[in-house]
Simulated scan of single mutants.
Amino acid sequence: MKSNVSTDRLSIADLNLGDRTELGKYTISTDDIVTFARQWDPQFFHIDEERAVTDGYFGGIIASGIQTLAIFQRLSVKSFIQNLNVIGGAGIDGLQFRRPVRPGDTLTGSIVIKDIQIQSDRGRALVAYTGELINQNAEPVLVLTISAYVQMRTT
């Protein structure tokens, strides 16, 4: 599906409720999972392939949820957020890890504008969007709603 949002620098006036942006793709490898987890989430089911098979609930190594969230962020920035003058994040609601991400999975997804609260006296808007990552089988692996402050363009 195509985005109905332009890829040029956007202003708040360019955003509409329901605008949908398709994310790019990211295929995750065992090395990606282990390298990330060794630094940020060193639980055995992320870093020890043998033990993940014998003792892990999922029968093999899986990506950290934090890594899955980071992949979502990267894809969102590259496909949409970099086109805005973002001031900073305001929060994440409803974060759910729906199923494990495994080596070889190809993740993609979309974001949809859910709410726009103009704060013209502060030169910004609070933009909320829902997001979803799915694997190559179209199974959701992550869902969430993110809010971020976006600077309003003056021209």
Score class of each variant (00 low, 15 high):
122 R>S: 02
55 D>Y: 11
89 G>S: 03
140 P>R: 13
92 I>P: 04
2 K>W: 07
18 G>Y: 10
144 L>F: 15
134 I>M: 13
113 I>C: 09
97 F>V: 02
17 L>R: 11
149 Y>H: 06
16 N>K: 15
56 G>C: 09
145 T>F: 03
141 V>K: 09
114 K>L: 07
67 Q>Y: 14
41 D>R: 08
75 L>Q: 04
55 D>C: 11
28 I>G: 01
62 I>E: 03
108 T>E: 06
121 D>W: 15
124 R>W: 03
21 T>M: 14
114 K>R: 15
96 Q>I: 08
5 V>A: 06
68 T>H: 08
49 E>W: 05
38 R>P: 00
13 A>I: 08
96 Q>F: 04
15 L>W: 14
64 S>Y: 05
59 G>D: 01
98 R>N: 09
67 Q>D: 00
51 R>V: 02
27 T>C: 12
94 G>H: 12
7 T>A: 09
135 N>I: 08
45 F>K: 03
100 P>L: 06
10 L>P: 00
25 K>I: 01
80 F>C: 00
102 R>T: 06
58 F>D: 00
98 R>W: 08
112 V>T: 15
125 A>I: 04
3 S>P: 05
65 G>K: 12
75 L>Y: 13
120 S>G: 05
30 T>H: 03
80 F>T: 00
29 S>C: 04
103 P>W: 15
93 D>R: 14
24 G>F: 15
42 P>A: 10
47 I>F: 06
